[in-house]
Each structure stands twice: as structure tokens, then as C-alpha cells.
Amino acid sequence: MTLSAQNLTLARGGIPVVADLSFTLEPGHALILRGPNGAGKTTLLRTIAGLQPALRGQITGAADQIAYAGHADGLKAMLSVRENLAFWAQVFGHSDISAALDAYALHPLADRLAGTLSAGQKRRLGLSRLLVTGCPIWVLDEPTVSLDTDAVAMFAAAVKHHLAQGGSALMATHIDLGVEAEVLDITPYRAKTTLRAGASDEAFL
């Protein structure tokens, strides 16, 4: 499934941050977003994932195809690693979680409570969730935060495997993963501050 966005204008907190951004993401390809803090990377990813509407522009090919991973991993501290993963697998209509546990070397941790994991281990669990969704398009916001080099290699391998299977990935990251990917720097698309959001709730923000 090809994901494409045309002339997107996005706002955060009622203030436009990105204007007239367009891109296309073909199956088997990865697109890495670059840009300084506050450039609108998270806003763009949340919009693509369907968590917020774009002010203007169109997104096609996104409906029910996207596995989103944001800053928070959506883990329950009082559930075990296996239970957390099995829950998300079931939400997406799957049941097999062993491949996901393998990919991030989580088997030794499978019966530990997620609340007792370290930050990097939690992140690995959060990323392994992508594998149980079965969705072709991954939308990832800073996926490598708090991962060590081994875990980054696991993540890069998982992304490569995903791309090889015809999936695609859109991610905001600052480190070099060693994955062949196009880079989209969104700095030039910064919205002019004079551009008004025009939303009806503007006065209340």
C-alpha cells in the first residue's frame, strides 16, 4: 500500500507548524524525517497515524494500514511482557507473539512484569508490538530513544526485514540506522507565523 500526502498543513496547539508538505512512501521503502526540535515531526507522524486532523491537504493509503509507535509505549506495568504483547496481538487480530519476542531477544524477560523492566527493555517491548500488528506501514516517533547499540541493531534488522517483506516505514530519528532510506528534512516546510489556523476553537487556545 502506497502512503502519500499532498500539501499537508499541520497545526499543533492551534498554531500551524508545517505548511505544504508532500511526500510519497512506496512499499519496501523507508522515509526518515529530519528537522530540529519543534519542526513538527511528531505532529506530522500523529497526523499520518490519524490521531489528529490536518488543517489542509490529503493523506491517502493510511486507513487501517498503520502501526504507530509514539513516545509512550502503551505498556501496563502490572502485566507481564508476554501479556502486554499478547494483548496488542489480539487487538490487531493475531495470536502469535514468539516471532516478536525473538526479534528483540525478549524471551528471557517474557514472564517479568513490564513495570520491572529497564527503560531500554521497555522500549524493546514497545517496538516488538509493531511486529504483532501485522500492519504494512510503520509510523515511528524517535524509536531508538534509550536503546543501546545491540538493541538498535535489533531494531535495524527488524526494519530491514519489514521492508524486505514489502512493508514501509516512516520514522523520525536522529541516528543512522544503516537502513537504506530516503531522508526528508521538514525544516523548509516550516509554516510562516502569519498563517492563521482558522479553526473555530482558535480563540480558546
Binding site: A69, D73, L75, A77, G93
Partner: peptide
């Protein structure tokens, strides 16, 4: 909401 589950549920097919 705090642990991000709601965001992920919103993007899930449910």
C-alpha cells in the same frame, strides 16, 4: 492516557 495506550488503541482497527 498516561502510558500511551489510548493513542495506540485509536490507531488500532478496533
Amino acid at each position: 492516557f498516561e502510558d500511551g495506550t489510548l493513542d495506540l488503541l485509536l490507531t488500532a482497527p478496533l
